[in-house]
Simulated assay, not measured.
Amino acid sequence: MTMETLMRERLEAALAPTRLEVVNESHRHAGHAGDDGSGESHWHVVIAAPAFAGQSRIARHRMVHAALGDVMLRIHALSMDLSDG
């Protein structure tokens, strides 16, 4: 299973998003610190989920980290655009 598939499955199960984009940006960081050579170290997610309603930005980030669980240990960088839309 690819990292993208794993991330997508976990985020969908935990947050039931109405919008989910999982973008591998590792190619933009090749040779930089944190590039482990796997091609799956740097990610960007766009998530709109009702579960984020009323939550602070930090709480939303924590929800994503919790949803990804041990996958976070295999990710060097994760940027996020999160909304309750």
Rank of each mutant, 00 (worst) to 15 (best):
H27G: 15
L82I: 02
D84M: 05
A48M: 03
S26E: 12
L73V: 04
H76K: 11
A67W: 01
H76W: 05
H42L: 03
R28I: 15
A53E: 14
A49V: 01
S56G: 12
A16P: 10
A53Y: 09
L11I: 09
A16L: 13
I75M: 07
T18W: 03
L11C: 03
G54W: 04
H32D: 12
R28W: 13
H76M: 05
V64N: 01
G34Q: 07
L82W: 03
A14F: 03
R19F: 05
S83E: 01
P17T: 08
H61P: 10
E40F: 02
L6K: 10
G69M: 04
E40C: 13
T2G: 14
H61L: 08
A77Y: 00
F52S: 05
H42S: 02
R57A: 10
V71W: 05
S26N: 08
R28F: 15
L82Q: 07
G54E: 07
G34W: 07
G37N: 12
T5F: 11
D81I: 01
H29C: 14
R28K: 15
T2P: 15
I47T: 00
T18S: 13
P50H: 01
A30P: 13
H61Q: 15
M1Y: 12
G39H: 13
L11D: 08
I47N: 01
H65V: 10
P17K: 06
Q55A: 15
G69L: 02
D35T: 02
H61C: 07
R60Y: 02
R62K: 10
M7Y: 02
R10T: 06
A77I: 02
L82H: 03
D36S: 08
V22H: 05
R57P: 06
G39Y: 05
L68E: 00
H61I: 03
G85R: 05
V71S: 08
V71F: 00
H65I: 11
V45S: 03
A59T: 14
A51P: 04
S26G: 04
L78Q: 00
V45M: 02
A49S: 08
M63Y: 05
H42T: 06
M1R: 14
L15T: 02
M1D: 15
V23K: 15
A13I: 07
S79T: 12
A66P: 09
S79G: 08
M63R: 10
L68P: 03
L78C: 02
H61W: 05
M63V: 08
G31V: 06
S56A: 09
H32A: 14
L20C: 07
H65A: 12
V23E: 15
G69W: 05
M63P: 09
H61Y: 09
R10K: 13
H29D: 13
G54H: 08
M72Y: 09
V46P: 07
T2W: 11
A59K: 15
R74S: 14
M72H: 06
G85M: 01
R19A: 11
L15C: 06
M72R: 06
